[in-house]
Structure formats: structure tokens, C-alpha cells
Design a protein around this nucleic acid. Structure first.
Lengths: 111, 111
DNA sequence: CTGTAGTACTTTATCTGTCGTAGTAATATC
DNA sequence: GATATTACTACGACAGATAAAGTACTACAG
């Protein structure tokens, strides 16, 4: 099994997290699990990476945090994507298209 | 015109440089120009990024440097790819395939 | 012969994002 | 009462990218 190195995904962690919030509000642990499943176990985001990404996304106004009344377990911080976050996500999708084209130019299937 | 952000390409700078050395030995300035042209001006590698990548690639044994007898201009440092460099390049090509698939999962064309 | 543009680097210092390590806090299960 | 799982937080280290500045050589215009 081939895990993806972090340097490769580096520019897309924020995008991946925003994607996870497009349809549903969620919280750290759940997002982490979903990323793992959604990538067929190929990408497992580190806890610290995830939570530092939350801080960055908050600071940029791309997500907002809130609490729900919870009866059990440690209190979760939920996140919701903002309109600015959606716009940013869209931009990154466009950029990804171009990036793919560019990097593909430097890739050979057979040497 | 959409330039590519550096964080995205970050994991592939070394790969791009190695690609440029697959068929011909070359030197910094030329590689820089070639990357620019080859990407249709979409990716312009920074000087310092390029030269620090050379150092890293040298340290890892992926490239070797040498001089040619030159009659004019400042002396160029030429680079040649090693077998280890070719192997590494191949690995990165495989990895790129997987990375593309994974990131694509988190990209929506229409929201 | 002076200034400017272009080639071809090098050095230094700084920033950002990732990540290892460790710790806290709550619940469930055995 | 110990262990596992969930759900974070704090701290410090590191790697790669980059800004800024400087060096060195050539060509060419004014």
C-alpha cells in the first residue's frame, strides 16, 4: 500500500478539509476519519496537521466553529464552512486543474 | 493567467528538475528557463528554490555536478542525473499517479 | 567609458506548514 | 481499576520555499 507523503498533499490539506465541510458541519475526529476512508486509507492526516489547519482556516474566515449540546464524551468543536470558504474552495479546484496539467508535463510513464 | 502556488508544486520541484535532466545535462539558468517554457509560463521556479533543490538533490546522490570549459560569461555549474536520480524520478511518477487520484476525490468541478 | 540589461549564481535570514511528543479530559468496556 | 477510544491542546523542531542582497562576467547602447 502506497501512503501519500505530506509534502505532496501539503498545498491541499485546507482544500480537503473544506470539501469535507461542504455538505455537513463536522468536527476534528470525524473529519480525520472521513478523509482516511474517502482516500481508501491512502491519506491519513496527522492530528496536529488537522488542528493547525482548523486554526488557519478560522483565521482566514473560511470556517466558523460552534458547540452542540452533547451529553457524553469530551466536548467537540464543530466547524461550518463560510461563503468565503466556499469561494476559496472553488479557486483551489480551478488551480488544481492547472496544477495537474503542469505537473503531468514533467511526468513520464515509461523511461 | 493563473500561476501555480508553490505549496502545491512543493513536493514535485525535485521531480521537475530531474525530468529536465533526463535527456540532457544542464545548468541552473537553462533549467529555470526550460521549466518556464515547458509549463507555458504557468510555473516559474524561484532562483533560490532551484539552487536549494540542487543542493538537496546532490546530497541525496540524485544528480552530480561538473564544469565545462567555457570561454565567456560566469562559469556555469552543470548537472547530470545519476541512476539513483532516475530511480527516484520513476518512484515519484508512480506516486504522482496515486496522488492525483486521491486529490481528485476531494475536488468538485461544480458546486 | 559609463550605465544598463542579461546571464549565472551564492549567502543569509525568515516564514509557513507539517509533525513528533506529550499531556488532558471524558466515556465505554472488560 | 486498567485499557481503549474519542476529542482535543501545547510545544518545539524541522524542511522547503522565498525575499533580499550581493558577486561576477559579458554585451551593447549612448
Amino acid at each position: 500500500m502506497h501512503l501519500i507523503s505530506s509534502d505532496v498533499i501539503r498545498g491541499y490539506n485546507d482544500t480537503i478539509i473544506l470539501y469535507m465541510l461542504l455538505d455537513n458541519d463536522s468536527y476534528g475526529y470525524e473529519i480525520s476519519k472521513n478523509i482516511r476512508e474517502f482516500s481508501d486509507e491512502k491519506y491519513i492526516i496527522k492530528e496536529t496537521t488537522l488542528y493547525s489547519a482548523f486554526n488557519r482556516l478560522m483565521k482566514n474566515g473560511y470556517i466558523e466553529s460552534f458547540y452542540k449540546d452533547e451529553t457524553h464524551g469530551k466536548r467537540r468543536t464543530y466547524y461550518r464552512i463560510t461563503q468565503a470558504g466556499k469561494n476559496y474552495y472553488k479557486e483551489k479546484c480551478t488551480e488544481w486543474d492547472i496544477t495537474k496539467q503542469v505537473i503531468n508535463r514533467f511526468i513520464k510513464e515509461e523511461i
